[in-house]
């Protein structure tokens, strides 16, 4: 999706020149250089005080399906408008009366516009739609009157089809994006699962199995991190902190309260404790992320202390954990 400038709205405030990260807005053509414009960036769109810049979507929403009855009734009216357009055009050409010619011209233009509107609404809204491609193909497949600009129709079909292929490719890319995120979720779970298995094996004295689980767990981390990165989900640290705040806030405000209620209702005490610890710790995490975002440029070193039982994090080693009560000396320093 690249940006375009509606030059009739542009009041030459030129903010777009200063905000564009690539210089795509700085041209002598009046238009934005699509080859430099970053897909979906929209910084210039939001900066323009005249609302003269917008993004041209590569994919438009699907048009409403037209029933045959609607199509017929609209085209039947369009046929009448075209007849009127032609009659009026003939009057405009033949009459000696300048006033009548002027009126006939207006009637001809008006009918043309109504016909265009009716035909457009009968299923030909978007030039790149399949309907339009089928229409162009039908012109090429049937005999046309002499002088038919065949190359124009062929070229149009070529361009519009290429567009369609791009769309299909884009769909594949979207599917791949979904797959990357699904793989990220799977690998992340496997990583934690193998870590749990490794701890169990260590406790049981099965040290080789413990070692293998630990190595496999680390391997899944490598996979997960790579999938996540390829999916383009790692942004600037400021944005990542914002994402962290959003994620933790969702968990402590929406997700865990529901889980806690259900665990209580079902009398599952272990789950209740696990959810409660996590819920309270996530609230702390959200707050810490917020602090970090506010002080993102601070260079003085900060230490964090992690409670190994409930996941609480403190900035000063406490006497005991404020969530689960574990003694402060068991906290791990980061």
């Amino acid at each position: 999706m690249h940006a375009v400038r509606n030059i009739s709205l542009c009041t030459k405030d030129c903010l777009c020149l200063y905000v564009c990260p690539t210089g795509a807005t700085d041209t002598e053509t009046g238009q934005i250089d699509a080859s430099k414009c970053l897909d979906g960036c929209r910084i210039c769109v939001d900066a323009c005080p005249s609302h003269a810049i917008s993004l041209v979507p590569e994919e438009f929403p699907a048009q409403q399906e037209k029933t045959e009855a609607v199509r017929k009734s609209l085209l039947s009216l369009a046929e009448s408008k075209i007849k009127q357009e032609k009659m009026a055009a003939a009057i405009e050409m033949k009459s000696d009366n300048p006033g009548l010619r002027q009126l006939a011209k207006a009637i001809s233009i008006s009918n043309r516009l109504m016909a265009e509107d009716l035909i457009r609404e009968s299923g030909y809204m978007l030039p790149q739609s399949q309907n339009v491609q089928d229409f162009l193909q039908s012109l090429l497949d049937t005999d046309q009157p002499e002088g038919f600009p065949k190359e124009a129709a062929e070229r149009l079909l070529e361009i519009l089809k290429k567009d369609k292929n791009k769309e299909d490719k884009k769909m594949d890319e979207n599917k791949t994006l979904d797959n990357l995120m699904e793989a990220f979720a799977g690998e992340s779970q496997a990583n934690r699962k193998y870590l749990a298995y490794s701890k169990k094996a260590e406790k049981d004295g099965k040290l080789n199995a413990a070692k293998l689980f630990k190595a496999a767990s680390d391997a899944e981390t490598i996979h997960a991190l790579k999938h996540f990165e390829v999916a383009g989900k790692v942004s600037s640290t400021a944005d990542n902190l914002k994402d962290g705040i959003a994620g933790e806030t969702h968990e402590y405000q929406d997700m865990y309260p529901d889980f806690v209620k259900t665990a209580e209702a079902e009398g599952n005490k272990a789950a209740l404790t696990s959810f409660t610890y996590a819920m309270r710790a996530e609230e702390v995490h959200a707050k810490l992320y917020r602090d970090a975002l506010e002080n993102i440029d601070q260079t003085e070193e900060v230490f964090y202390y992690l409670c190994p039982v409930c996941g609480n994090i403190e900035k000063v080693r406490p006497d005991k954990c404020s969530i689960c009560g574990v003694p402060g000396d068991r906290f791990i320093q980061y």
């Binding site: 085209l75 046929e79 075209i82 016909a115 265009e116 030909y124």
Partner: peptide
């Protein structure tokens, strides 16, 4: 019904 030449023209101009 097939479109008349006039209608095809209006379709294309739109």
């Amino acid at each position: 019904r097939e479109m008349s030449f006039g209608e095809v023209s209006a379709l294309c101009s739109n």
